[in-house]
Computed example of a mutant assay.
Amino acid sequence: MAGYFSILLVLLTLGSGLIWLIDHLMYAPKRQERLALAQTSAGAKLDDETAALIAPEPVLTETAKSIFPMIAAITIFRSFIFEPFQIPSGSMMPTLLVGDFILVQKYSYGIKDPVWRTQLVEMDEPERGDIVVFKFPGNETIDYIKRTIGLPGDKVVYRDKHLYIQPKCAEGEVNRSNLQCGEYNKIDMEVKDRGEFMLKGMESVRINESLTEDGHDILIYPEVPEKKGRYFRQAGTRTDEWVVPADHYFMMGDNRDNSEDGRFWGFVPKENLVGKAVFIWMSFEFENGPDDVLPGWVPTGVRFERLGNIQ
């Protein structure tokens, strides 16, 4: 849906700009000639109302001139700087909740054209722990949001609800993470809270996972079995192990037992990256049930405490 809206904005920008340009080059000079002749005949400058009657500006041209600057500014901002997204599911709980409205920094991983998504300018690459919006590899009309777990060349293992990473560390390459090269690093987990959320009657455990220096919170449900039978199978690896190909990334949701992520469908190509989630600018509560007068999509409150930078 977001992709179609981007195309619509580009078409509106090009269409209104083209109408304005054609009028400026071809039709506006003719209107000016008619006004000049009329003023010469009248022997005085014509007022605006009379001028509009003698050389009226077409409604289409007037509309194009009025919307072009605004549409062009929105297109540039949304395509190359920041794009707003709404969190539709709980796969990134507790970091992002349903009803959070976020800003995604579009230029973080390169500047792309908004229609064909061709890379125009190379920028940084995702780092472990980045929360990234990307085009779902199975259907690129759908935007997904997950956390970057594995970088190109990394070996990732998710076993017994623990994460292990063997980072790729080529000779002479700077290791920018807190992980040890050449060995599997068991990512430390510290329990912070229990029972904060429920999944099918089972209580959650909020855990701080030290994937990065500052760490981030995840949710697990100890009673939920791992769905290894549905895991993406990569040739030459075990069921719960993946080696990230070149120019690809391995993504996982923070809600580990309730997230359809790279464990189930594989890797995200670099060209599918949309941007880095950086800020929650609004967060609504939706608590209307089937017996309430108002429909479920009507907000029941605002979570002001959630506004701010995304960790």
Rank of each mutant, 00 (worst) to 15 (best):
E125V: 14
Y109P: 07
E125T: 15
Q105E: 12
D154M: 03
E125A: 14
I142S: 11
Y164A: 01
L120K: 05
V174C: 02
F136P: 10
G110E: 04
T141M: 06
G138A: 10
P137M: 08
K168C: 05
P126A: 07
P167I: 12
Y109R: 11
D143P: 06
L151T: 08
I145C: 14
V115S: 00
Y109F: 09
N175P: 08
E140G: 03
G150R: 12
Y109L: 08
V133N: 11
K106Q: 13
W116V: 14
V121E: 02
R176S: 10
K135W: 00
Q105A: 11
K168M: 12
I131Q: 00
V157K: 00
P126H: 05
T118R: 15
Q166S: 01
S177I: 07
P152T: 06
R117L: 08
P114W: 05
E140F: 06
A170S: 12
Y158K: 01
R147I: 11
Q119K: 15
E173M: 13
L163C: 07
E173P: 09
N178V: 15
N178Y: 09
K112A: 05
K112N: 04
V121D: 00
D154K: 04
K112T: 12
Q119E: 15
T141E: 08
M123F: 05
D160T: 00
D113T: 05
W116E: 10
D154P: 00
P167N: 05
F136E: 08
L163G: 05
K112V: 14
I142V: 15
E140K: 15
V156S: 01
E122M: 09
V174Q: 02
S108I: 04
V174M: 06
G138F: 03
R147M: 11
Y164V: 03
V174I: 13
Q119A: 14
R159M: 01
Y144A: 15
N139A: 06
S177N: 10
L120Y: 02
E171G: 04
Y158H: 00
K161C: 07
E127N: 14
D154N: 03
E125Y: 02
E122L: 10
T141G: 08
P114L: 07
N178R: 14
R128G: 01
T118H: 12
R176P: 07
T141P: 01
G110M: 06
T118F: 13
G150K: 13
E171Q: 10
Y109M: 10
K161L: 08
G129M: 09
P152N: 02
N178P: 02
H162M: 13
I165F: 00
T141C: 05
I149V: 15
K168V: 08
L151I: 10
Y107V: 13
N139D: 14
K135P: 06
I131W: 00
Y164S: 00
D154F: 01
D143M: 09
D113M: 10
I165Y: 00
I142E: 13
D124N: 07
K161N: 09
S177H: 10
G129V: 15
G138L: 11
I145S: 13
S177Q: 05
I142W: 03
R159F: 01
E122D: 13
R128V: 15
I149G: 06
E171M: 04
D124V: 00
R128K: 15
K135Q: 11
E171A: 04
S177D: 03
V132D: 03
L120H: 03
V174L: 07
Q105M: 08
G153T: 06
Y164H: 08
